[in-house]
């Protein structure tokens, strides 16, 4: 094979890109959520994983039971004052980089329960990347939030700014 032919065949098979884009692409398309259900929204989260909506199309069907293996926490439901320290611990146990979706009105703001028992928004204890409105949001809303998060992850590169 001559040098020209070699150069030509390499040109067809080699892409040049930045490492950040490749890592972002990989991370964004394999977001593994922690299997962490709280209240009503958890049922819709389960519905998102079933055949009708199929979160697996976006590479996130692997709900991990252990926070050590997951990089997305979907806070699906209301967070009580008693649950808040546990939620924070689970977040701390997740490896970097990690992201949080606050699913539903209760997780985002306390929703209709403006009272002593509930944390008025999960962003008081963990940083939230995407908020989903709704009580509970439809499964399609969760997919939309996941796609927004994927775009963000892809743009972040190697070292995501937390």
């Amino acid at each position: 094979m001559g040098v020209e032919a070699l150069a030509e065949s390499l040109g067809r098979n080699i892409l040049t890109t930045t490492l950040g884009k490749v890592v972002g692409w990989g991370r964004g398309n394999s977001v593994w959520p922690a299997q962490f259900g709280l209240a009503c929204c958890a049922i819709e989260m389960i519905a998102t994983a079933t055949a009708g909506v199929d979160i697996g199309r976006f590479g996130s069907e692997a709900f991990r039971a252990s926070p050590r293996q997951s990089d997305l926490m979907i806070v699906s439901g209301r967070v009580s004052q008693k649950m808040a320290p546990i939620l924070r611990t689970i977040y701390d146990q997740m490896p970097e980089p990690k992201w949080v979706i606050s699913m539903g009105a209760c997780a985002s703001t306390g929703g209709i329960f403006n009272n002593y028992a509930l944390l008025q928004g999960v962003d008081k204890i963990v940083p939230v990347d995407v908020y989903i409105p709704g009580c509970p949001p439809r499964p399609e809303d969760l997919l939309n939030a996941l796609m927004i998060l994927q775009e963000r992850i892809k743009a972040q590169g190697i070292l995501p700014q937390q």
Partner: peptide, 14 residues
Amino acid sequence: IGYLHTGIEKQMEA
């Protein structure tokens, strides 16, 4: 139990 205590009964009074 109590990890999902929402204060529903108090909320209803308000």
